[in-house]
Write a protein that binds this DNA or RNA. Structure first.
Ligand SMILES: [Zn+2]
Ligand SMILES: [Zn+2]
Ligand SMILES: [Zn+2]
Ligand SMILES: [Zn+2]
Lengths: 136, 136
DNA sequence: CACATGAATGTTATGACATTACATCTGATT
DNA sequence: AATCAGATGTAATGTCATAACATTCATGTG
């Protein structure tokens, strides 16, 4: 359930593209997939993505310059989310860990650092893809 | 001590540029700073950065597309390093946390995920810069 | 209704980051 | 000398993201 009543047409189209995709998409890939819906310029995609991120419906994966639909929309108030990204099949697992959050929180408190956005991304191979590689 | 006997001329120049800088630098900024040393093309920088990262002398900050000299060269065999990046003054603090490492390690084991590179980056404001903002 | 206002959109151009492809040079090895 | 691997030089291209400006649309207000 990724529906959201307040979404504009462009935002809905971008979110639907991400939902249909089997992995993260770059902004330009989204653009290509929405040509038939009238999309012509990168900004249409980036503007929609910006709003969708504000709404918590989409996440940006910093380490691969791509975007995914949130796996738990309306469901995590966590400021801190971790991603495991399979570099072979594109599968993305989204999870949070209170202990990690607490430890990083302790570090920033101790250093009087004021965090705004935290990125935790693990790139590698998922169980299925790593298994295939073993057999090869 | 960031010296390294095996470095080539280009690698040394790039590392020195990062050491002299007071914060992370983009590849193109490094290029500009090395014009007088004969640098002409981005690839000279990217190739040097690639090797320096292999040697553990330089880190790439994924969330801001920039590079920093390692704060603890020859000193951390950690696979997992976290960065606190001040978006105002560019200060970067590099640290590692065994508990965070252990918790993320547990997650990947439980999910049979084979990690290759882990990114942990906290963007925000350092104590000094956050303090200034308060007073303003 | 006329009109101001703010949000979203459309469009073009530009800026910023990174790699491909190919030629050349260097030093070590045989 | 011939060979080879690694590093380098250079041009062109590819990929990701934003600036600037005009237009449209919905909404509320006098
Ligand atoms: Zn999410
Ligand atoms: Zn996979
Ligand atoms: Zn380091
Ligand atoms: Zn600062």
């Amino acid at each position: 359930m990724t529906a959201h009543p307040e979404l504009t047409r462009n935002q809905s189209l971008v979110l639907r593209a991400l939902d249909k995709a089997d992995g993260p998409l770059s902004a330009y890939t989204i653009l290509d997939r929405l040509r038939d819906d009238g999309f012509r310029a990168p900004l249409q995609v980036y503007r929609a993505l910006e709003k969708l991120q504000e709404f918590g419906l989409v996440h940006r994966l910093e380490s691969i310059n791509a975007f995914v639909a949130c796996a738990h929309p309306n469901c995590h108030g966590h400021a801190m989310i971790a991603f495991a990204i399979c570099q072979t099949c594109g599968r993305v697992d989204e999870f949070s860990d209170e202990v990690v959050e607490e430890r990083l929180g302790k570090w920033v408190s101790a250093h009087r650092f004021k965090p705004e956005k935290t990125t935790i991304e693990i790139r590698g191979n998922c169980a299925a893809c790593a298994g295939l590689a073993e057999r090869a």
